[in-house]
Design a protein around this nucleic acid. Structure first.
Length: 256
DNA sequence: ATGGTCGTTGCACGA
């Protein structure tokens, strides 16, 4: 089973690239973020014609998350399901795909450490932990994947010194991510690339992609039983090239 | 050292 995550930065703007990529890479499950669509504008028929069932949790204009699957799509849950307050923004959707409980997540950016949005980001990560624990146990096959807007360690950013005091690398948000992993999730990409400086997002500006200035903030986390099945993981940098790319590249993990 | 580019929308803001 090939599972992938991709922040597409507007599915309306990116649909041709996504269609081409699906045909090329043939994932069994694709989690998307930042569709920026209302549910009634989501191109479910286009994906159906390519062999994928789909579920979308959107709000239009901003945010929006989706799951495509050709190995079954059941028990779809938009938003958090931990019994706490619903997120007013469309940032998480969960479904059972091929025996794996998959969540597609778009963690709030945070904007700056002194911004209210940063507190929202920390609260969001804490609720994500409760959501995952409410729906599953660490012994289950669980994948939590998407745009975390958190670089787990300093090797996940091009120049850590330039980011001191910035979001994506601060201790409190890294602690939230570590706490999520402590529940029983493993960074599948790092299993296969122990110390590679490889990124999944590059600013559109200043030629950052071609200069290699990026961050690894798109993660595929899996429980132990999933991690044991994971034979291969890669960032598909090719999808960041060419005409009208997203600023994120897809991350792929193959399960035996 | 600074600014730069997209996508949304509407003439600015989020990433």
């Amino acid at each position: 089973m090939r599972i992938a995550t991709w922040n597409v930065n507007s599915l309306k703007a990116r649909l041709p690239r996504v269609e081409e990529w699906l045909a090329d890479v043939q994932p069994d499950v694709l989690c998307m973020q930042e569709t920026k669509l209302a549910d009634d504008a989501f191109p479910a028929l286009t994906f159906a014609s390519l062999g994928y069932e789909s579920a979308h949790h959107g709000q239009g204009q901003w945010n929006g998350v989706a799951i495509l699957s050709r190995v079954g799509l059941a028990e779809v849950v938009p938003n958090f399901a931990d019994g706490g307050p619903a997120d007013p923004e469309a940032r998480i959707i969960t479904a059972l795909c091929g025996g794996v409980r998959v969540s597609s997540v778009y963690v709030p950016n945070g904007r700056s450490l002194d911004h209210e949005h940063y507190q929202y980001k920390l609260r969001w990560m804490a609720q994500l932990r409760r959501h995952v624990a409410a729906l599953s146990s660490p012994e289950d096959q669980v994948v939590v994947t998407g745009d975390f807007n958190i670089a787990p360690t300093d090797i996940d950013v091009h120049d850590p010194k330039k980011l001191i005091g910035a979001t994506h690398v601060s201790d409190p948000e890294r602690a939230e991510l570590a706490a999520l992993c402590d529940w029983g999730l493993v960074d599948l990409f790092r299993q296969h690339h122990v110390d590679d400086k490889l990124y999944s997002w590059w600013d559109y500006r200043a030629g950052d992609f071609h200069q290699g200035r990026g961050m690894r903030i798109d993660l595929v986390l899996g429980t132990k039983s999933v991690a044991e099945r994971c034979t291969f993981s890669v960032v598909d940098r090719n999808a960041r090239k060419g005409q009208s790319p997203s600023d994120h590249a897809p991350v792929i993990a193959d399960l035996s």
